[in-house]
Amino acid sequence: MSEGIAKMGVQEIYKILPHRYPFLFVDKILDLMPGKSGMGIKEITYNEHMLLSSPVLLIEAMAQVAGVILAYPLLGLGDSLGGERGLKRGGGDYAGYLIEVKDIAFSGDVSAGDRLILNLALIQKFGNLFRFDGRAIVGDKVVIKGELSIAVVKTAKSPPPPDNPPLPPFTKGG
């Protein structure tokens, strides 16, 4: 029986997505159902003005969650992070591309300090194309919603990532 993954931290996300600070817009993933759905969490900080001023990067944040959802079945990881973790940079030999956004509705109510909840659920698969319903929520308000389509293509082997990708530096007294 297929089971979900309750929680995935940023170090695990690093092993799946090629995105890095400051362009990684997912801090952790909760309730991941591989190939089907997942919830991304993004804590927005005051210096991420690019996320506050434009819906485009909120769409990118949703697409990154969709990438994690799709990566699991593609990488043959099953439903668990335990055991062999053959994860490679950018999802191994696959790459996902955001190819279409549709029916986007944006309220613009995103502020520094907000916790952005990114709910993604697969609507339809056809060939290597995947259509998701995406909703970003702050508190009890949907700040952006719409449909995203991702194309997954096989790629040439990419170089392996560092064993322990560095997290963004912490600055004292900032």
Binding site: I99, I123, Q124, F126, G127, L129, R131, S149, A151
Partner: peptide, 26 residues
């Protein structure tokens, strides 16, 4: 194109209750 095909697959499922399971059928 292929993105249009995905849209038609979604439309057929939602409006006609007809699914197109894979590319060969499509």
């Amino acid at each position: 194109d292929s993105i249009d095909a995905l849209e038609l697959v979604v439309g057929l499922e939602q409006e006609f209750g007809v699914s197109i399971p894979d590319e060969d059928v499509g």
